[in-house]
Amino acid sequence: MPVFNGGITNQQTGLLDPKLLQQRGPLLQIEVSVPDVLANKLYQEKKPIPPPVTGLGLLDTGASITGVDVNALQQLSLSMINEVTMNHPGGEDKQGIYACQISFPGTQIEDIEFSAALGSNLKGQGLLAILGRDVLKDYQLVYNGPGGFWTIAG
C-alpha cells in the first residue's frame, strides 16, 4: 500500500512547521487532467489533448464531494456531465459535475482515473482542488497536528 507523508517546511529552519500545517492544512501537489478515455477519443479523432493542470489539493474530510477549480476545468475543455445540489449557509444551489482524472505527482499514490468532481471557485483560495470524502473513502489519513505532518495511505 503506497504511503505518503506530507507537511509544510519552514523555509528558515528547514523543519516541518506545525503552525504552517494549522494555517494551510494538509496540501499536496496534484495534477488534474482529461480522463484517459476522453484523451484516447481525442487522439483517435486527431484533436489536441489539453495539457494537465497542476496545483495544490487540500485534503478535506469535511467535504462530501471533491471540488475542482472551474478555471482548470475550462482549460481542460471538460463538459458538464451532471448537476448536484450543494448546501451552503445561504441555502442551496445546483452546481455542475465534471469528469476528470486526478494524479499525485511525486508520490506513489495511484491515479484516480475517473472522478466526478464539482466545479468550484477555488483559484482565489490558491487551490486547484478540495479532495473530499468521495476520494478519501479509499485512503487512510492520519493528521499529526503537533508533529506538523500528515500521512495518507492507499
Partner: peptide, 11 residues
C-alpha cells in the same frame, strides 16, 4: 438525489 456540502468553502 443526495445533496452535498463543502462547509470549509461555504463558510
Amino acid at each position: 438525489q443526495p445533496s452535498h456540502q463543502i462547509p470549509a468553502l461555504g463558510n
